[in-house]
Structures are given as structure tokens and as C-alpha cells.
Design a protein around this nucleic acid. Structure first.
Length: 170
DNA sequence: GCGACAG
DNA sequence: ATCTTGTCGC
């Protein structure tokens, strides 16, 4: 398993780190932190400059115990976190209008734990999860500020690309 | 037994 | 995540 972390400031990559090794457990929905937590914490701790907020492929309160991987990692690192996923884990809610910036609530019972966000017209909306020391409003603003005109936040694209390169050996 | 189920 | 199928755009 490979993990990559990049620090993006004003659209520019100002820090990057890649780390490899064995995943620490199997993939079990609801227990991602057990599988990926240790290596993700390691790769973030090695990065410089230290970020103001972490964007992760993970959920926050959309979790059986309201503690998705983004919550765990934020707590472990004492760093604000925001999650971005393709789909919710448990929460449900109708898609927002097909307009950039449109949002709609994702709820578990009466609690809104995340929001659908249409980052770009004509594409599937992303799920934005407030997590450690962030709320819905901040989470959406962080994601929108990191889009760089694309559907997916630039830090996540860069990190995926770096991890893919490392996995291929280079 | 089958589908759902972050990555 | 990974894989497969289908669509759209360059």
C-alpha cells in the first residue's frame, strides 16, 4: 500500500511526501482507520510545511459511531480535517441541482452529517464531510477553494497521482 | 442466498 | 479499491 500527502497553497504544490508499506488490516466498511490510519498518520507527519487543514478521502460523522477516518486522523494529528468521498457510507439525501456550487443535505436520522456538493456542472456530485474541528460551511468552502476548475480538489488529485507513480515504481 | 458497504 | 461497461469529447 502506498500513501501520498501533498501541501497545496494557492494552487501550488509546496510540499510532498510519499510512503509505502503494508496496510495494517483488511478493508471493512466502518473500520477504515484500522486499515489506513497508521500509514496516513505517518505520511502526514513527514510533510512540510505543516498544513492548516487536511483534505482526505474519508468520512467524518457519516459513520456507525460518528467517527470516520477523517475524524480519527484529525484527532491523532491535532489538525483540522475535511473529508471528500464519491458516495456516503450511511447517510442519505437527494442530489443537488446540476449547477456548480449546488448542495443538498446528507443525513442520518435528523442529523446532517455531510453534504452533496456539485463541484462542476454535468458531473456527479461529491460528498463533503466536516470532520475534526470543521463544520459543514467550512468543509464546503475548503473544497471549493481547492478545486482549481476541476471536479476533484487539486490536493487529492496530486496525492493520488503521486501514490500511483510510487506504486508503479518511480 | 443476494445486495449493500468510505477506500 | 479494482473491474467492467457505456458515453462523451478531443
Amino acid at each position: 500500500m502506498w500513501a501520498a500527502a501533498v501541501v497545496v497553497d494557492a494552487g501550488r504544490i509546496v510540499g510532498q511526501r510519499v510512503v509505502g508499506g503494508c496496510a495494517s488490516g483488511p478493508y471493512v466498511p466502518g473500520m477504515l482507520a484500522l486499515r489506513l490510519g497508521p500509514q496516513l498518520e505517518d505520511v502526514v507527519r513527514r510533510i512540510a510545511p505543516w498544513p492548516e487543514v487536511l483534505l482526505l478521502d474519508a468520512t467524518g460523522g457519516d459513520h456507525p459511531r460518528r467517527a470516520g477516518l477523517a475524524v480519527h486522523l484529525g484527532a491523532a494529528l491535532d489538525l483540522p480535517t475535511v473529508g471528500v468521498t464519491h458516495r456516503p457510507l450511511l447517510a442519505t439525501g437527494a442530489w443537488p441541482a446540476d449547477e456548480a456550487g449546488a448542495t443538498s443535505p446528507l443525513t442520518i436520522g435528523t442529523d446532517q452529517v455531510a453534504t452533496w456538493l456539485r463541484t462542476r456542472r454535468g458531473t456527479r456530485p461529491l460528498v463533503v464531510h466536516p470532520a475534526w474541528r470543521t463544520d459543514l460551511d467550512v468543509a464546503v468552502r475548503v473544497v471549493e477553494a481547492s478545486l482549481a476548475g476541476r471536479r476533484t480538489p487539486e490536493p487529492l488529485r496530486s496525492a493520488r497521482q503521486a501514490a500511483r507513480r510510487a506504486r508503479a515504481g518511480q
